[in-house]
Design a protein around this nucleic acid. Structure first.
Lengths: 339, 339
DNA sequence: TTGTAGGCGTTATCAG
DNA sequence: CTGATAACGCCTACAA
C-alpha cells in the first residue's frame, strides 16, 4: 500500500510540468504528443485523482448527506432506496447519518454542514424544534427537509399529506360499514403523531361520526408497543370493529393481538396501517395501508437538492406528495384470513 | 450563505497568527490569554473546521464506505443497521454505495478507493471474479469483504456458513418427518447460490435421502421469481412436503403460491427461508428461517475494519459467523395457518 | 509561547 | 501550447 502517485510523479515520468498533466487529465486542449506521454505515464503508474485535494480546490465534494431518523425504519429505507440512485446518476456520493430521532444528533448534523464534507443535505426529522429552525436559517449548504416545517421557513421541503391519507382510510372503513373505528397512534409530540391524530378526529367529523376518546390509544411507532396499545384498547372497547394504525409496524402488532384474541381480520376487526412498507405486503392477512409516498418523497427530495446544487438561488420550493390507499386483505372481506 | 470563516479570519480578528489559532483549536499548550482571544473570535464568527482541508493534510477522511449489492435487500440493510452505529461511535462517517450486484460497479468502487475519499471499505459482493481479486490485491486502503473469498486471498473477511445453515434446516425438516424436501434456489453463478445448492445436496446425503433433480428449482432471489419457481416445482412434484428456500423473499413467494394452491403450511408443505429478515417475522404464517447472522456479520466487518484502520499490518483475519435456525409457524405444526 | 514558512495534491492564472 | 506559481484551508517543524 505504498503512497499513490500524484500529478508530480506523472510529470516527472512524462517529462512535462504538473500544469500539463492537469490539463491532459482534465481534457483541456493540449498537443497530441504531450497527451500521449501523460496518459502513458498515468496508466503505468495506476494514477487515480485525489478527491480530497480536488475538493479543497474546487470547493465541491460531490457528496450529499442523508440524515434519517432511524436506519431501522422501513419507511426511511424506502426513501433511501430512491435517493441513492438519483444521486449516483448525478455523480454524487451518499453519506448516511442515522440520528435515532435524537434532536441533539440532528442539530449536530446540521452543524457539521459547516465542515464542508458534503455539498448538501437531505434530512427527515421526526420533530422540528426552534433549534432546528435556527440552524436551518444559518446552514452553510443547501438543505432539503422531508417532513413539514412551520409556515414561512425558507427551506426546500417535501411533505406528505397524512391528513388526507388518514381520511382516505377512515372513509374506506366507513364504506365497509365500520362505525366503531379505533385509532392507535404514536407519541403526540412528534410531527406525524400530531398530524395523524388530528386527521383522525377530523375525518370522523366529516362523516358525522362521534369522536370517542376511548377509541384512541397512544403507544409508540413499533410493533411491540403497537400490540400493547391494541391490547388495552380491546379490553376497554370490545366492540371496536376497525383499527386505524399510525404506521405499519403498529398495524402488525395489531394483527398479532387480534389473532391471539381470536378476532378475525377483517371480518371482526378491519385493520389499516400507514406508510405502505414492504411489511404490509408480506404480512398475512396482507395489510391495507395508506401510502404516504415514502419512495416518491425521497426521490423528490433528491431532485430538489440536485436542482439547488446546480441551479442557484430561486425561492424555496415545497413539494407535497399525495397519499394513496392500498387496499389489501386486512380490510377486504372476501379474502381475509379465515381463522 | 457567505463564505465561511477560516483560521485566517480568526487570526486577524484575534490579532494572532494562524499557527496560534490552529494550536488553540487543537488543544495544544498555549497561553491562557491567547486561548481566550481565539475562542472568542471563533465563537463570534461561528467557525467550523473545514474537513476537506484537514483531510488533505492529515491523509485521513474519517469516512468509510459500505458497498452493498442491493439497497433493497433486507439482508444487507440488516448489515447496514449494525455497521452504522459502530462507525459512528468511532467517529467515522458512512458513505453508502449500491452496486446492484453489477460487477463493473463493484470494480468501480474498488478503483475509486484510490481517490482517497474514504479511509477504508466494507464490501459485500454477490459474485467474486478475477477482477475483484486483482483490485483487492492492489487496493490503496483497507478492505473488508463480507462473503467468502477464495482460499489464500489476503483480505480481512467475514463469512456466513450457509452450508451448516442449510443442514440445520434440512435436519429440522427431516425430524418433522418430511422426506420430499424441495429446494428453491437463486442463480448458481452467485456465491450464495452455489453454496446453498451444494449444501442442500450434502445435507440430504448425510440423512441418507436421495438427491432428486426434480426437487430442485432455480429462480432468482426475489419474491415473484420465487413464486414462479415454486409453481413449476409444484406442478412437477405434487407430493413435495417441504421447501427449502434460498432466501426469505423466495420463501414469501412460496407462501403466496401454496396459499393460492390451497396447500396448508406447514401441514401439507413446510417452508423454510433464509437470512431471517424482518419479513420472516412479519409474514403469516411466520416464517421459519435460517439466520446467517447478517447483523453479526455487519458488526464484525465494521470492527475488523476499525481495527485495521487503527492497528496496522497484522495478518488478514477471517471471521465466520455461525448460522442459527429460527423456528416459526411455517414449520411448527400446531400453530400453522389453518386454511 | 509565538510567528513564519512549507507542504498536503489540485486547479487555474499568467507570462513565455 | 507550456511551465512557473499562486491559491484552496489546515497543520507543523523550525526559528525567534
Amino acid at each position: 500500500m505504498a503512497d499513490g502517485p500524484t500529478i508530480n510523479t506523472i510529470a516527472e515520468r512524462a517529462g512535462v510540468s504538473i500544469a500539463s498533466v492537469s490539463r491532459v487529465l482534465n481534457g483541456l486542449p493540449t498537443r497530441q504528443d504531450t497527451v500521449r506521454k501523460v496518459m502513458a505515464a498515468a496508466d503505468e503508474l495506476g494514477y487515480v485523482r485525489n478527491a480530497v485535494a480536488r475538493s479543497l480546490k474546487s470547493r465541491r465534494t460531490h457528496q450529499v448527506a442523508f440524515a434519517m431518523a432511524d436506519v431501522g425504519n422501513p419507511a426511511y429505507l424506502a426513501m433511501l432506496r430512491e435517493i441513492q440512485p438519483v444521486l449516483k446518476a448525478a455523480g454524487y456520493r451518499l453519506v448516511l447519518h442515522s440520528t435515532d430521532a435524537v434532536v441533539a444528533d440532528e442539530i449536530d448534523v446540521l452543524h457539521s454542514l459547516g465542515e464542508r464534507y458534503v455539498d448538501g443535505l437531505i434530512m427527515s426529522p421526526l420533530r422540528v424544534t426552534e433549534a432546528h429552525l435556527e440552524m436551518l436559517a444559518a446552514a452553510r449548504a443547501p438543505v432539503v427537509i422531508i417532513g413539514s416545517v412551520p409556515e414561512g421557513t425558507r427551506v426546500d421541503n417535501v411533505r406528505a399529506d397524512s391528513r388526507t391519507g388518514v381520511k382516505l382510510a377512515i372513509d374506506h372503513l366507513h364504506e365497509l360499514g365500520r362505525r366503531r373505528i379505533g385509532m392507535i397512534n404514536g407519541p403526540l409530540d412528534t410531527v406525524p403523531g400530531a398530524a395523524r391524530g388530528a386527521a383522525y378526529r377530523e375525518a370522523l367529523g366529516d362523516l358525522g361520526l362521534p369522536y370517542d376518546e376511548d377509541l384512541v390509544q397512544i403507544g409508540d411507532f413499533y410493533r411491540a408497543e403497537g400490540a400493547r396499545a391494541v391490547g388495552e384498547l380491546l379490553a376497554r372497547v370490545p366492540d371496536v370493529d376497525a383499527l386505524m394504525c399510525a404506521n405499519d409496524l403498529i398495524a402488525l402488532g395489531a394483527l398479532d393481538v387480534l389473532r391471539a384474541a381470536g378476532r378475525r381480520v377483517p371480518d371482526d376487526v378491519a385493520v389499516v396501517g400507514m406508510d405502505d412498507t414492504d411489511l404490509a405486503a408480506a404480512s398475512w392477512p396482507s395489510l391495507t395501508s395508506v401510502s404516504l409516498g415514502s419512495a416518491e418523497r425521497g426521490k423528490a427530495a433528491a431532485e430538489l437538492l440536485l436542482d439547488r446544487l446546480q441551479g442557484g438561488d430561486r425561492e424555496p420550493r415545497v413539494v407535497t406528495v399525495p397519499p394513496r390507499l392500498v387496499i389489501r386483505a386486512s380490510t377486504r372481506q372476501e379474502e381475509g384470513s379465515p381463522a
